[in-house]
Design a protein around this nucleic acid. Structure first.
Lengths: 146, 146
DNA sequence: GCCTAATAGTTAGCCTGGCTAACTATTAGG
DNA sequence: CCTAATAGTTAGCCAGGCTAACTATTAGGC
């Protein structure tokens, strides 16, 4: 067994809840977003348009559920439906400027909140933290694909 | 403005979603747990018994909602209700051995999964990661109280 | 080139979890 | 003691999730 990996895993599972407890309210209950879960969905649309099936699968909900969810997000003006011209069965979902703006507001607010929490940390510790985060980024982006 | 704090905050908000995408299924859809959200609730009971009002407030739900949720968790045998003897209005909620066991199974499984992902990381990077996590732990436990 | 099968979404009907309002039981205070 | 406050529960309603059934479009076999 790899003891350092286990130590790091254990530590992550202790620390992540502490962080999430602080960040959750920023992300899930921001003014203007009707439903907490909608944030993740809108976020997924940042890297480009998707169709309903992809979104449903990625978020572990059924197609009808995603269809309804998208309907309410359309009504709120955060996303828009659009027929694909090559295959007219498909519906392309993409962010509206309003949706994009909402996301960047949440992002900015959360980032500021986090930075405030990290401000009292010593310079050296901040370097250490940034280095640790880089390790995590590498570990979790190489494992992404499957 | 503190530039390192902002850099760290930005990096955290990029990296955390990557991690959560991997861990969410382990935590929210484990066999035996009826509802995804129940995990957080049971976890909160690990540090001792609580009454309904505390739980409701901590989890941002109303008292009736928490009452119903606890009822279903009771029916599944994960927690038990118990009248407080000093103030008979209060109801003390605590984990049953079954509930405790369920939590440690989820914990063990998730920890193993995480350790597996971290295994290929170099020794040096693992040290770096552990150091970074320690910084986070300090930052987020000193900020806990308010 | 049709006719069937497969694929993408939507609609209908049901169930659960959330909320507010109203109620019961117990304790605190003038 | 009698009123007010506090802790939970019950009742009734709404939104989000699911399955089943339906529509529309594309793909494939003969």
């Amino acid at each position: 067994m790899d003891n350092d990996a286990t130590t790091a895993a254990r530590e992550m599972l202790d620390v992540i809840p502490l962080i999430m407890r602080t960040l959750r309210p920023d992300i899930h209950n921001p003014a203007g977003l009707p439903n907490p879960g909608h944030f993740h969905l809108l976020h997924a649309l940042l890297d480009g348009p998707h169709n309903l099936s992809e979104l449903a699968e990625k978020h572990n909900v059924t197609l009808p559920t995603m269809s309804n969810t998208i309907t309410t997000l359309c009504e709120h003006g955060f996303v828009q439906r659009q027929q694909a011209q090559d295959d007219r069965r498909r519906v392309i979902i993409q962010l509206t400027p309003t949706g994009r703006e909402m996301l960047s507001k949440i992002r900015a607010y959360t980032e500021a909140h986090l930075a405030e929490i990290l401000a009292p940390v010593s310079e050296e510790d901040k370097k250490q933290l940034i280095a640790g985060l880089a390790v995590l980024r590498r570990a979790f982006t190489t494992t992404e694909q499957p």
